[in-house]
Design a protein around this nucleic acid. Structure first.
Length: 638
RNA sequence: GCUGGCGUAGCUCAAUCGGUAGAGCACCGGUUUUGUAAACCGGAUGUUAGGGGUUCAAGUCCCCUCGCUAGCUCCA
């Protein structure tokens, strides 16, 4: 049941397959239905095994998920990897009893009594949240669980599973509630399917951007520097710069299909006075993510001590220092919008910046390039009149699709609506959500999903998400409406009727961040970048020292023509040079031996196609590469 | 931050019951001058993440810190 496989982008400009984290009981085909039942039932079997082996273990939820299932347990015992093996054998033992899954219906009161009797506090709590009426239980062997079903007929059908890992979780996902332990497993309908899945995972691990980043010398995370701080090595920096150049070009020219919607570049500082972050609301609403900046002077004078905070002589009553490192670019852009007076004729104003931001992310959340503490967003803020908001959202939406389609990413789109705690009136939220929804209906009708309550406190948003090699989802592009900052910074423009009006603001990022996008790109291509992004376009391999000067002249000629070319002047034999070139995933290798020197030719080897019989001159290679670069041809590894 | 797991040479990994750390690749030196995925010979390579403890003796056992990692939570 690969994510969204049934909704692959056939004939559509973009693929917008919804991908619920927890497999929902809707719209499943026969096999998916079968796998759903197996996984759900295997979760029950595991829970039974755990309760047999570790009496007193209480149950939380145990749903089927992508490729498998999990069950959350409340137990004093700390489950280890060793335990997983024990639990797994117990499961096989129990499965052999061929216990049927029997459905029972009881009243809510009975269910409540049953679970309280068993000391299943969490189950009882959950029963109370259910609507009155019949409640279904499923019994298999001696194990009874609150469950809507459906299940397989008997535990005999549960054969092809494997427990994979144990991790922590919280009751109802609330970190203030009970800490639980979650055991994950994978389950399939045949031995081959299980084997194939495990092999797929192994294969995917080889495409992990953290592994490839090291192998290919793209980036490092020096421990001394601090966790989550990416450093680009020369090869990584080259790829990054290509991406930036391309994105810059698209912004300036509207080359994403909207030549009328061009952006103006801005550049803003990395630190702003703490007062700015107070006005923007970040200090209040984004506090746990902010790095503050202190001067040694402040420290030396003890201005940051508790005592001084109460000292009215200083204007640093928060003890926060006078400056904050920016976690977002918006306040800077807003300040520049505020320079001079703006007319409705100036709107929409589109400001963009590749702005590096710093966020104190919790240690446990860091993940290679996909989640870091310093990253550069391809950020922009659009200041609009109410009239042009819809058109602008469309433009941004198309921009995102243009980029993702260029790379062939399999992505999807979600609308995030008003959270419980929020700023602004319901009327404004209605208007904003409807605006976003209208664009989605126009561009992606039936292909987007809605996550109620998941918006930011200042406005609703559309998010583009991309999956990594292991199927984990990451947010890339985002379109966010904001009613907060224009208000807080008292933004105004003069309308046609000569009255002062407040502009509507759109925050947006297309890639999201260069770091995250780079990481996902590496996984998408298995490290073999399309030519236009590749750190090295072509490497020239002389067979022996005799051809060195000819090889140098070929490299020189390629460089003169603007290609990223290099020479392999090592003492290795050709076979080794080819091997090194392939392992470095260099798109083109040029071999020159005595034959080539005599004929004034080259022999060309392509990463994807092997030897190219028709490319025997620098001219021919240049033409081929130029064409490939111009068309941004990409080819995934087979 | 929380719950599990992990940390040995630049990389991948070994080291029996606690007995003084080793292999391949990479690197350096030499030989070889090479025709499509690893030439040959030689050499150096470590505060076993850091700190503390137990012990005659710690890579190995215990504690703390740091980092990585699978998830939870949060998010570009």
């Amino acid at each position: 049941m690969p994510f969204g496989s049934s909704l692959a982008n056939v004939g559509l400009p973009y693929s917008l397959a919804p991908m619920p984290i927890i497999a929902k009981k809707i719209e499943r085909d026969e096999r998916e239905e079968c796998l759903y039942r197996i996984r759900h039932s295997t979760a029950h079997l595991m829970a039974e095994a755990v309760q047999v082996l570790f009496p007193g273990t209480k149950l939380a939820f145990g749903p089927p998920v992508q490729d498998g299932f999990y069950y959350d347990f409340d137990s004093d015992h700390r489950f280890t990897d060793e335990d997983l093996k024990t639990i797994e054998s117990k499961m096989r033992e129990l499965a052999k009893k061929k216990s049927p899954f029997v459905k029972k219906s009881i009243s809510k009161a009975e269910a409540l009594r049953l679970f309280e009797q068993q000391g299943e506090k969490l189950k009882a709590e959950h029963v109370q949240t259910l609507s009155d009426g019949e409640i279904t239980l499923y019994e298999s062997g001696g194990f009874v669980d609150l469950c809507a079903g459906p299940h397989v007929e008997s535990t005999a059908q549960l054969e092809h599973f494997k427990l994979t890992n144990v991790s922590g979780s919280y009751w109802r996902g609330d970190e203030k509630r009970e800490r639980l332990q979650r055991i994950y497993g994978t389950a399939w309908d045949s031995k081959q399917a299980l084997k194939a899945h495990l092999a797929r995972i192994e294969e995917a691990k080889k495409r992990d951007h953290r592994v490839l980043g090291k192998e290919l010398g793209l980036f490092e995370f020096p421990e001394l520097a601090g966790p989550g701080l990416p450093f680009y090595l020369p090869k990584g920096a080259r790829v990054l710069q290509q991406l930036k150049d391309w994105m810059w070009q698209l912004h300036i020219t509207g080359g994403y299909g909207h030549p009328d919607k061009t952006y103006e570049p801005l550049a803003t500082p990395h630190i702003l006075r703490t007062d700015a972050w107070k006005i923007s609301g970040h200090l209040e609403n984004y506090r746990e993510n902010m790095f503050m900046v202190y001067s040694l002077d402040e420290l030396d004078q003890g201005l940051l001590t508790r005592e001084s905070r109460e000292d009215s002589q200083t204007n640093d009553k928060d003890g926060l220092g006078n400056y904050g490192l920016k976690p977002m670019n918006c306040p800077g852009h807003v300040m520049l919008f505020n320079v001079g007076t703006k007319s409705y004729r100036d709107l929409p104003a589109r400001y963009f910046e590749f702005g590096t931001v710093y966020r104190y992310e919790r240690a446990g959340t860091l993940h290679g390039m996909l989640r870091v503490r310093s990253f550069t967003q391809d950020d922009a803020h659009l200041f609009c009149t109410p009239d042009n908001v819809a058109r602008e959202i469309e433009g941004v939406f198309d921009f995102c699709c243009h980029i993702l389609d260029t790379f062939g990413f399999d992505y999807h789109v979600g609308l995030k609506t008003r959270p419980e705690s929020r700023l602004g009136t319901d009327e404004i939220w209605d208007m904003a959500e409807n605006g976003l929804r209208a664009v989605l209906e126009k561009r992606a009708a039936g292909k987007y999903y809605v996550q109620e309550g998941d918006a930011t406190f200042y406005g609703p948003k559309i998010d583009f998400t991309i999956r990594d090699c292991l199927g984990r989802e990451w947010q890339g592009g985002t379109i966010q409406l904001d009613f907060n900052l224009p208000e807080r910074f008292e933004l105004e423009y003069t309308d046609a009727d000569n009255t002062r009006k407040r502009p509507v603001m759109i925050h947006r990022a297309i890639l999201g961040s260069f770091e995250r996008f780079f990481g996902l790109l590496i996984e998408e291509f298995g490290g073999a970048f399309p030519l236009w992004l590749a750190p090295i376009h072509v490497r020239v391999l002389p067979i022996g020292d005799t051809q060195l000067s000819y090889a140098q002249s070929v490299v020189g000629e390629l460089k003169r023509r603007g290609f990223r070319a290099e020479l392999d002047d090592s003492n290795d034999k050709l076979g080794k040079k080819i091997r090194n070139g392939k392992m470095d995933k260099v798109p083109y290798l040029v071999v020159v031996g005595q034959k080539e020197v005599d004929d004034k030719t080259i022999t060309t080897e392509s990463y994807h196609d092997g030897k190219l019989e028709d490319v025997t001159t620098v001219d021919a290679l240049s033409d081929r590469m130029n064409d490939e670069i111009e068309r941004r041809v990409f080819r995934r590894r087979a």
